[in-house]
């Protein structure tokens, strides 16, 4: 199912984060969302991931309208948000959360959590409390708990921001391995242009609450049509 956002607007305390933004996200494709701070990337991601409702406009997954089927659709989604979003629990309980929500039986749950912890090099951290982790480990746990439910749609908000190259590589490899096994739709908000080239099939450029350009990754970087996109990906100030 493609994700379609139609005429989405969203404001926070009078400040407009999205302005009648319309976007179609293709199923099975990895899409990177880039743009300067405050351009509405994270808001777009939260609305597309059904975490927040839009102020106005519609979100649909294929024939399903988010407003009517939000409970069912959330079961198909995994999200990694930026910053510290781990629960006040052990690493194991954090990773098991989504499976418990889905009422998976204990033996199967244990196996899945162990496998996922191993694939993100976290097996020895299972019993640790989330607050005892380094930022790299914490982010790997956040990725593990989103992937363990085997979502059809994965939303990542700056998944490797402020991480060192090793942690970044572990996370990117885990994502690539899972993508090689299953055709998963991935939407990644990132400021890292190198990462965008590595992981994305398509790129959306956002500016002032709207998508101003969208294309396949190679085309965006080789021949951007919009002047703001060209300046942004070349590291020139666009403010």
């Amino acid at each position: 199912m493609n994700i379609v956002l139609s005429n989405i607007s969203k404001s926070y305390n009078g400040t407009r984060a999205l302005r009648e933004c319309s976007v179609a996200i293709e199923k099975g494709i990895s899409t990177a969302v880039i743009g300067p701070n405050g351009s509405g990337k994270s808001t777009l991601l939260r609305i597309a991931a059904l975490i927040e409702g839009p102020g106005s406009g519609k979100v649909s997954y294929g024939e399903f309208r988010s407003a009517d089927d939000v409970k069912k659709l959330r079961q198909l989604i995994g999200v990694v948000l930026s910053g510290d979003t781990l629960f006040n629990d052990s690493v194991y309980d954090n990773v098991a959360y989504g499976l418990k929500i889905r009422k998976m039986n204990k033996n199967e749950l244990r196996g899945k959590v162990s496998d996922m912890l191993a694939s993100l090099s976290l097996s020895d951290k299972a019993g640790k409390h989330a607050m005892e982790l380094s930022s790299g480990e914490a982010q790997r746990v956040a990725v593990a708990r989103a992937l363990v439910t085997e979502p059809e749609y994965l939303f990542l908000d700056e998944p490797t921001a402020s991480l060192d190259p090793l942690n970044t590589e572990i996370i990117e490899n885990a994502l690539q391995e899972i993508r090689a096994l299953r055709r998963m739709t991935i939407v990644t908000v990132t400021h890292n242009m190198f990462q965008t080239k590595r992981i994305a099939d398509r790129v959306m450029m956002m500016y002032e609450g709207k998508v101003i350009e969208e294309n396949i990754t190679g085309a965006i970087f080789d021949s951007p049509e919009n002047e703001i996109t060209r300046r942004f990906i070349n590291g020139i100030m666009v403010y």
């Binding site: 939260r46 991931a49 059904l50 975490i51 927040e52 409970k71 959330r74 079961q75 989604i77 995994g78 999200v79 990694v80 948000l81 910053g83 510290d84 979003t85 781990l86 629960f87 959360y97 989504g98 929500i101 889905r102 956040a142 708990r145 989103a146 439910t149 939303f155």
Partner: peptide, 15 residues
């Protein structure tokens, strides 16, 4: 409790 905690739960399938 930061709003991100509620968002994270919803993002993992919670009602």
């Amino acid at each position: 409790v930061r709003p991100a905690i509620k968002y994270a739960a919803k993002g993992l399938g919670a009602s």
